[in-house]
């Protein structure tokens, strides 16, 4: 089954047929009930045929220092003192599937990074040129270059599973139910309920991490210490770097406009899809079914 594309790297717009609408999906991660068992790490590798990666014990329960081209899902372990108590924080790290994906914005290869209508941000290896620009565009330090394939690699939010109605592999493997999957709206509801519960349980600063600097993400995270995302190795206020934005919003569209064929294409698209008009040359808001 093919998925409608909302945005595509180095392209003016996506390729939505407009024939159906897709709801934005999201993972839900409740760090307060995660026990760091790493079942999601293994499920991710097994489903995606990755690894294993050579690791060594360097004094931590954490499998690797950071994500890896063969390891897209990593539980980050942090020991933190707070208010005289101790917290051993475990947070599932993977691609956050930003609503405004910095990787996609930074990518110069047409169609190498796409954002589907359901919010999933994916790398298309056929188009990827391995330039690593997406690394610089990502405020979460997620995409990794694979020396084996010469391409970039990251969590796909199991787009192959999701597109046929299954939950991502990591979600399926989670034994405690700290991971859920569904529409972004439902997951936000779930998260808000849990945060209320945590507040009643002594965590006054509990919060949902759904950073608005990137217009929210398709991975929302419940944090007991919501005022300190950095405790969990999360950026406090992530944004797409201004340099990437500049390239995306000004420099590249100028080049694009210069390409006559693209203009013809835009016109053709307009003719085909009627009112889903292009609001300017940027693909940002173009061609969106009501998500």
């Amino acid at each position: 089954m093919s998925l409608d594309i909302r945005r595509s790297s180095a392209s003016v717009w996506g390729s939505a047929s407009g024939m159906r609408t897709a709801q934005v999906v999201s993972k839900y991660i409740d760090t307060t009930t995660c026990i760091g068992c790493k079942a999601c790490e293994v499920a991710c590798q097994e489903w995606n045929d990755l690894g294993p990666v050579a690791t060594e014990q360097v004094g931590t329960y954490q499998t690797l220092p950071t994500l890896h081209a063969e390891f897209w899902n990593l539980i980050r372990f942090n020991e933190r003192d707070f208010d005289g108590g101790l917290a051993w924080l475990m947070r599932k790290d993977q691609c956050m599937h930003c609503d405004e994906p910095g990787c996609l914005a930074a990518c110069p290869a047409p169609g190498a990074i796409v954002q589907y209508a359901n919010g999933i941000v994916d790398v298309n290896p056929d188009q990827c040129i391995g330039c690593k620009y997406c690394e610089t565009g990502c405020p979460f330090d997620v995409p990794r270059f694979s020396a084996t394939t010469g391409k970039m690699a990251k969590c796909t939010l199991c787009v192959d599973r999701v597109s046929v109605g299954l939950e991502p592999a990591c979600i399926k493997a989670c034994p405690t139910g700290c991971l859920h999957f569904g529409t972004k709206q439902d997951m936000l509801e779930l998260a808000k309920g849990r945060v209320q519960q945590l507040k009643g349980n002594g965590f006054a600063q509990a919060a949902v991490y759904d950073p608005q600097g990137v217009h929210g993400t398709s991975v929302i995270t419940v944090l007991a210490h919501g005022d300190h995302p950095e405790y969990y190795d999360l950026p406090v206020d992530p944004h797409v770097p201004w340099g990437v934005k500049l390239w995306k919003t000004i420099v590249r569209p100028l080049g694009a406009i210069a390409i006559f064929g693209a203009v013809i294409g835009a016109f053709g698209h307009y003719m085909n899809h009627g009112r889903k008009g292009v609001k300017g040359a940027d693909a940002h808001d173009a061609n969106l079914p009501d998500a």
């Binding site: 293994v42 294993p52 499998t63």
Partner: peptide, 10 residues
């Protein structure tokens, strides 16, 4: 697969 998760004695 499991060795990569906990590679050695500590």
């Amino acid at each position: 697969v499991l060795n990569q998760l906990q590679p050695g004695f500590f």
